[in-house]
Design a protein around this nucleic acid. Structure first.
Lengths: 199, 199
DNA sequence: GTCTATATGCGGATAGAC
DNA sequence: GTCTATCCGCATATAGAC
């Protein structure tokens, strides 16, 4: 018989998630979260650097998954395809079955500027991780960073649509759509060095 | 004779800039900044919402300039070109002659995670402002957001290179280069609906 | 628990504009 | 004289360091 209930981190995340949804981020204290999880405030701060961090636990696993996928991907694909395929694989594993949870998490973040700042920091960290993974495959650092940024643009566009009520398609498909949208936006410039198929 | 020395805001910004460069952001107190500017701590917080904000004053002018340029731009151009031209115009006005200052400011920010968070927030706000300006020209909101994100990707790529010691070309030119790089990155996908000029 | 620093609320002072 | 912009003083909530 275990000395404590298992998965303290998970219980703290769940408790925080509930309380933030019920009464908002600012009006929730760390003491409340710990109490609902059956733990102490001290234990909370052992697991999370600050109150915000409890909402961003999934992020690091997502990042690791993506970096793994990029490293494993075939050498012949163009870099942006490598990134989008990695995003699709990670989405299947970690997002696809949690649309409701992801949506509610997004609502909590959208309601609080502090949390938005942290979210942006995480996205920036993910961009740098992706760029590093691309650089490890031989891409020059500048192009790697640009490609990673483009990939995250695709990801954000897809997730934004995926978390809308009217949308029911899988995230994998919306990622493909978003990539195509980015290509369209980027291709429609006066600086044409490429012409349409048909003359 | 005026009751106070003029331009309290400017003096506070200059004092903060110096002190952050001399001894870092964290090791500088608001009291020190105010003292060097010949003002009090309370006055500092009358002008700036928090300590970080004193470094981000130029940003709002930059944003206004860009939004103005987008609104004034010819209707016939593709959206991403509209954004990049607006960035070029605003860069000529506000950045080109301050490369050293911009570089030092960037170094201060790069040395502090708190300031990076704020920088990312400002960039996100700029993306939304650009998207709103594009939407006002008739572009649908989703494409507007994607185009604005792509534009800021171009801006970041160009500024990153512009603030490197070895680089001496004008920012306007680096923006054109970065746009071309983004087009290249986005076009090199397996999902080809466009073919190269030459067969 | 004390100390320092950030940040906010409220009141009030004074020079110059009207 | 009134109004506004600019600035100052005091009290205080909060958070982290020690």
């Amino acid at each position: 018989m275990p000395r404590w209930e298992p998965d303290g981190v998970g219980r703290l995340q769940a408790a925080a998630f509930e309380l933030f949804a019920e009464q908002g981020f600012e009006r929730t204290t760390v003491a409340e979260i710990a109490q609902r999880a059956g733990l102490t405030q001290r234990t909370f701060f052992n697991h999370f650097a600050d109150k915000r961090e409890v909402l961003f636990g999934l992020g690091s696993e997502f990042q690791e998954e993506i970096v793994r996928e990029i490293a494993a991907c075939a050498d012949t694909l163009p870099p942006l395809d490598v990134v989008v395929r990695a995003l699709q694989a990670a989405s299947d594993t970690m997002f696809e079955e949690r649309r409701a949870a992801v949506t509610r998490r997004q609502e909590i973040i959208d309601a609080n500027p502090e949390l938005q700042e942290r979210e942006l920091s995480k996205q920036a960290a993910l961009i740098h991780a992706i760029a590093a993974a691309l650089h490890a495959r031989g891409l020059d650092p500048e192009t790697a960073l640009l490609t990673a940024g483009a990939g995250m643009l695709v990801q954000q566009t897809a997730v934004r649509r995926w978390t809308q009520p009217a949308e029911s398609r899988p995230l994998r498909e919306l990622l493909s759509d978003a990539l195509h949208s980015l290509r369209t936006v980027a291709t429609q410039t006066t600086d044409q060095r490429v012409v349409p198929l048909e003359t």
